[in-house]
Design a protein around this nucleic acid. Structure first.
Lengths: 398, 398
DNA sequence: AGTAAAAAGTTCAGTTCCCTAACAATTACG
DNA sequence: CGTAATTGTTAGGGAACTGAACTTTTTACT
């Protein structure tokens, strides 16, 4: 390899060595993963890896876990002993023999090792709650109507929580909440106009009341987590919830996108047609004013002969406004959650076609647009998953 | 707290306890952070925390570092001794006294502790390279024209690397590359049509040749990393590069978004106007066919009386197609990089106004649209930052 | 049937990395 | 000048991993 031919060494650029105005890196950067690591954190991390390998219903021997995790059998035995002691794992018989050698004892998550409480405050007229086990199965349900006798919503949340706690048969791991509005990292709910909540410290209230760990997230955000954890398993996913409003949850590399104002996914009042109808938010042509479920069903009721074309146009509109986002983030799938009168084949295929027509290239696999695999329980399951995440996500401390 | 009033215990939902089709969590999920943790990883993590606190030119004493990191002075002393031994840190005098007590010794990054090689293969007609120090200052530059005597681009990359290595005055930490096209996680470049690269293992080639660590990223992706590291410091940021093509880089919570096909940011050939002009990609009305720098300058040359309106319309168009993404991800700022004949005040303010008109709500701070703080060196600086990241990002191993 | 090989899980010693506690050195202040 | 505060270091101890060796169980081969 000879010298480079024809280059100008030290050539002066137009920008004259831009003196590198190195602005100090702002410490809010990088997902806050700036906490110190302790030897203890190593254990926490490795516990999470084992639990994730087994979650939700995989059976493996210690030796399997060692191979899968890269840790030694010694370390696995130690961690497993700890997890068995905490009733998070259970032994379930012996492995099938596949050749010479001692058969290993199969381990799996003990679904009833803990109970999880989940609240869904995002449905109209009613607060819903459930007790779930570690694997996300609903063990018990409660609900409490919002119309109730002059009580404020926060008290109803308290009562719902009380009755859920009484129905939990195992140690309660934590409370997960799906709330409408903007939810801060500290669990403070803002802008939940339907509930009249402005800067309501929901996490503080529940933690104070119960002493339990409490995670609060926006409803659509939790729904996309549920879709990952209990649905498709995809780690890049956009979920759009069509309901009375329009919200979205966004997962990138398995991480929930929350945004700089914690307002990620709040797309209902983004103007998509400045000539559109007046929205209750004051602007014209918000997405919500065009394709919310009430708007579409009203249009369909009014013009029952053109159901298909109403739905097709709505699907095309939603597809059009989301196309660039799907392209920008290179997302493989958009899941839509909502009333099946609206979110049906016609709507979804119009949306899918619109997006793929605009996105198609040879380096991109076609985008899939379909209905969320989860039903009405999505928000509850998502809330549950935020609680379980403390156990199976290594990111936590280290 | 009494019993919940008016709830239906065990009420049967329309979806009859959806049997929880718990699809097994696909193991590609969650950013691949599933590697085991060892005591060694703890040290790596804590080293990174210290270096990040000091990066790029902060001076602190050991005691300062202990307070800032949460680690004890003992641990800090130990880690610092190690870093001093590796010439990554240096002592620079004593701290000012602010009260009683011994004065501490100030520590800072030793900019010349390592050299970093950066290559920018994304500019037309020429490959550019630079030697940088740890803090991202350019120490030397090289370039090599692409027009050269029948040599294939890969050989030119090799020659450029050779000459850069000769100019590195300190131990070389690694090579960072900004390449056009789609770059896989393994550093294989695909779809770089200008260079004729299809499935070209650039990282393998350079690693083989030099034995150094090599990171390869798409050019726009690296540029947004540079903008974070050496520009604004924001950890949520969209950077749009207007050049012969149109590309973007996206940062969410400080993490680069790469997408399921590694095609995140490849927005140039997303159709934004199906009635638009034919694009060389075969489709009609791709973003690139409407607002690439050549297209806009051609339009401006042809109609010199309407420069402002051409730019305004272009800015409005770009703003319109990016609005939903900014809303969906709740991004505070869009930075635009490109020729100042196009990316100027008129263009940017049209874009900014378009987006804020559509996004404005009371829970969202106004979006900022401006020019990237970095100039032509953005891609080089970004490449450099990917190399330095191994040092100052705790996420790596643990 | 007997023996060798293989695999699972455990025991033991050793390493890394952190913490707490105690100490020496330096500085300000009354 | 003595006391308190602060920095940085030394010494001892605990948590969590590894590697090597060991026991037990199971299969396979002669």
């Amino acid at each position: 390899m000879g010298m480079v031919t024809g280059f100008k060494a030290q050539s002066p650029w137009r920008v004259p060595v831009p003196a590198l105005s190195i602005v100090r890196r702002i410490m809010t950067s990088n997902s806050g993963n700036l906490s110190k690591a302790l030897p203890k954190s190593v254990r926490h991390h490795n516990r999470a890896i084992l639990l994730r390998l087994l979650y939700p219903d995989v059976s493996m021997t210690r030796a399997d876990l060692a191979r899968a995790s890269g840790l030694t059998r010694v370390a696995i035995s130690d961690i497993v002993a700890e997890l068995l002691g905490e009733h998070l794992l259970m032994e379930v018989g012996y492995s099938k023999s596949t050749g010479p050698g001692k058969r290993g004892r199969l381990l799996r998550i003990n679904p009833d090792g803990r109970s999880i409480l989940a609240l869904d405050l995002s449905t109209p007229y009613v607060f819903r709650g459930a007790v779930l086990n570690l694997t996300g199965q609903v063990v018990a349900r409660e609900e409490i109507p919002l119309t109730a006798d002059g009580k404020v919503p926060l008290d109803l949340v308290g009562e719902l929580t009380d009755s859920l706690m009484q129905r939990a048969a195992h140690p309660i791991m934590g409370i997960g909440v799906s709330s409408p509005g903007i939810v801060s990292a500290e669990g403070v709910v803002d802008d939940a106009t339907n509930l009249g909540w402005v800067q309501t410290d929901l996490r503080g209230y529940l933690h104070e009341k119960t002493g339990l760990e409490v995670t609060v997230n926006n409803d659509a955000n939790n729904e996309v987590l549920a879709e990952q954890q209990f649905g498709s398993g995809q780690s890049d996913l956009l979920l759009v919830h069509l309901g009375d409003g329009v919200g979205a949850g966004l997962l990138v590399s398995g991480e929930l996108v929350t945004g700089c104002n914690r307002a990620a996914g709040e797309i209902g009042h983004v103007v998509v047609d400045p000539t559109g109808p007046q929205c209750r938010c004051g602007k014209r042509g918000c997405l919500e004013s065009l394709i919310s479920v009430p708007k579409l069903t009203a249009a369909m009721d009014k013009d029952p002969d053109n159901l298909a074309s109403i739905l097709r146009r709505a699907g095309e509109l939603l597809g059009r406004v989301l196309t660039m986002s799907a392209g920008l983030m290179d997302i493989p799938r958009v899941a839509v959650l909502g009333d099946s009168r609206v979110v049906n084949r016609i709507f979804l295929s119009a949306m899918e076609k619109t997006m793929n027509d605009a996105l198609a290239t040879d380096f991109r696999r076609p985008l899939v647009v379909d209905r969320s695999a989860l039903g009405e329980d999505a928000a509850l399951l998502g809330a549950c998953s935020t609680v379980v995440a403390d156990l199976i996500e290594p990111d936590g401390t280290v």
